[in-house]
Design a protein around this nucleic acid. Sequence first.
DNA 1: TTCATATGCAACTATGCGGTTGCATAACGC
DNA 2: GCGTTATGCAACCGCATAGTTGCATATGAA
Lengths: 104, 104
Amino acid sequence: MDAAATFKALGDPTRLAMLQRLADGAAYTIGSISNGLGLSRQGARKHLQVLAGAKLVTLRNNGRETEVALDAASLARARAFIAELEQRWDRRLIALKEFVEDGN
Amino acid sequence: MDAAATFKALGDPTRLAMLQRLADGAAYTIGSISNGLGLSRQGARKHLQVLAGAKLVTLRNNGRETEVALDAASLARARAFIAELEQRWDRRLIALKEFVEDGN
DNA sequence: TTCATATGCAACTATGCGGTTGCATAACGC
DNA sequence: GCGTTATGCAACCGCATAGTTGCATATGAA
């Protein structure tokens, strides 16, 4: 539940593209998700390990392949973190508005 | 509106701490927000420039100080990006469930 | 068994990033 | 004007990260 680590994992276009694929598509293996990303399989594997480290993705070994699946729980936590920031910001603006309108 | 760049800016504990302060607090200058973060003013300035580059923060020059303010629009976009991923993921799970339940 | 496939591990390179220090500069108060 | 304060700019250091290649290994198929 380290928000910074989650955002850091999200902060790379290749990894975001992987997540988009996972959200859309069907089953993916490390090899199949590597295709079309413009990097080597090993490069893709490193990114997947970063995503797995942030619990944004799960890697499950199945025979000679490794299945990749999105883990939506961390996504939800990241979204909640931002939502809380926004709420506090909104409350601050409202408080400021009231302060001004009270003529004080 | 580069989602990866926004998340990258969010992916650092010091920068998240800055945003939390900005969401809570009153007016901040570069100097005042540097205090209590355990780094030099120049270090804080670099982080603020990263946040400004991602449009998460605005830096406004006022006399000899520079005012720092949260810009909630980029936060909202980042949250929307995650929400969209989650929605697509949910739809996929629902489709998969129906597929299984149709016995096909 | 034998071959092809999917993956894991290690080493290596280049670049980016967090952080610092030193110096220059501009604005406020006396 | 003069000292103080808040900031900007540049150079530098160390480490993490994105990316690669080469090789080893385990599994599925013929």
